[in-house]
Design a protein around this nucleic acid. Sequence first.
RNA 1: CGGGGCGUAGCGCAGACCGGAAGCGCGCACGGUUCGGGUCCGUGAGGUCGGAGGUUCAAAUCCUCUCGCCCCGACCA
Length: 575
Amino acid sequence: MRFSALFGRTQREVPADAELASHQLSLRAGLIRQLAAGIYSYLPLGWRVLHKIEGILREEMDGIGGQEIRMPVVQPAELWKASGRYDAPAPGPALVRFQDRGAHDMVLAMTHEEAVTDLARQEIRSYRQLPLMVYQIQTKFRDEPRSRGGLIRVREFTMKDGYSFHATPECLDRYYPEVYNAYQRIFARCGVEALPVEADTGMMGGAASHEFMVVSEAGEDTLILCPECRYAANAETAELAKPEGVTGEPLPLEMVPTPQTTTIAALSELLGVSPAQTLKAVFYATPEGKLVFAMIRGDLDVNEVKLANLVGVAELRPATDKEIRAVGAVPGYASPIGLDGVHVVADDSITSGVNMVTGANKEGYHWINANYPRDFCVDQTADIALAREGDRCAHCGGTLQSVRGIEAGHVFKLGTKYSAAMDATFLDQDGVAKPLVMGCYGIGTGRLLSCIIEQHHDDYGIVWPVSVAPFQVHLVSIGTNRPEIVAAADALYARLKSAGYDVLYDDREESAGVKFNDADLIGIPVRLTVSAKTLAQDSVEIKARWARDREMVPNADLEGAIDALLAQKGGLAAG
RNA sequence: CGGGGCGUAGCGCAGACCGGAAGCGCGCACGGUUCGGGUCCGUGAGGUCGGAGGUUCAAAUCCUCUCGCCCCGACCA
């Protein structure tokens, strides 16, 4: 490709709207252009990178028995009604709905479980056809409440989504690690350090899931890591070892005045007790407006995702003061003591500790010496605590750390959620019809591209890993006013192309500085320079994008030198 | 959806408080110059000042409404 003919130009100035390095660089290098909020076009350079990523995805998916298919983006709403997601609050308005000219309800697919389950129920009759994995690389549309960070979070995006079908949960359990390992290879081959973490299943549902997280300050998720035992989980689901509560002999329940003391910090200071000797009451409301009373020891925080899963709703919102008072509780002074008709979910930490301080449901008063279950009861006790940096690891007691991460991939054990809802069954050995056991596996390609840039750039621009670089070689000619230089560069370009290299040839009549700066910005692995200086030595200058030094290589040895650099970063040579 | 910010030439911005000829840098076109890290000189093209309404002799500027984009939160690959 001649640079002079390349569609899409580089930009010197940083676009005002871009904050993340990946966003700025993908705009400046001419990879993408924005059409609307969270909706982007790919220019040739960006599209080439996406193709490289897709190639890796195909190889790895094919390698674990995947068969590539293609399903539609526009789908009848019936499918989504059948799975229950059309009316569920979970995808909600993110699912774009419209009617076709025949007034049929349609949707834009935000993922393809419904479509693939429909395919499976048509094609799969017998256990003999199982297990099976199909995948596609296809557009998804999600009308997200907010897009951000360029390609990090968009509304229209392409995803590699794979779906496996099994006769038994055990078979899924055996296959799941194969996908997990393939994902590890995919990210490694793209040059991205991705950390697999235990994750919440969210709107997808299912038994278990892992996210592949690219550690980055730009990340939207909080990860909890144990450096001792390598435990890693999304904070939404992370476990922690809760400190022991205070011990002692139970004393009689007593009400004490605590004016203007509505926080745990103020309360423990006023009464001279540790936060671990207090009980915290937090109120949430379900989408239907039902109040949920969460109770947890004062030294811990409530994890809303754990709580929502426990209650069986897609999401919770903080309850309003009005809703809290409606059940007889007093904000800042609430507790289950003397409260009826409210669903109380308690963290298991409340069973540890005696003589706790808790609200009296009366403005300005708290109970002291509250003991469970002597003084109050709850409807449900479970782990609803949020793991935080500095907490103890539930598995080894180590000190938990917290980092931010970008979710680049997600694998789920779906089980029979969709097959049961949509009646996708097969006949087992005994001739009994059973729902298919499913797994699903996704990687966002554009987001992965952004993650690669986040991890591979410097002050001058992108530094592509060889495996995903838009071209292998960036050929620069300097001194375009001299015909012999142009001729030599043209000849070298032809030679490299016929040798099978992907070459971007900067043949523009620009100064050396402009060309070098663009080369650094675009970030192609190997830069070759042809100039009066190199001609005089019958050589070509070669420089790796990631290296500082450049080197003169005799014309005859050039291919060897290029291959050596490409191989250095794990890429494949021409051929 | 809540909070904050911004819409003036392809990009980055000034002009707005205090109404009175639409500007600057980069980029782009042409001519010359230079030729190993964003050369230099000259000439030029390019803007319904996001849109609609209002106030006024006069609106980029003041008022009202509206559309769009970015950032922070609640959701996801």
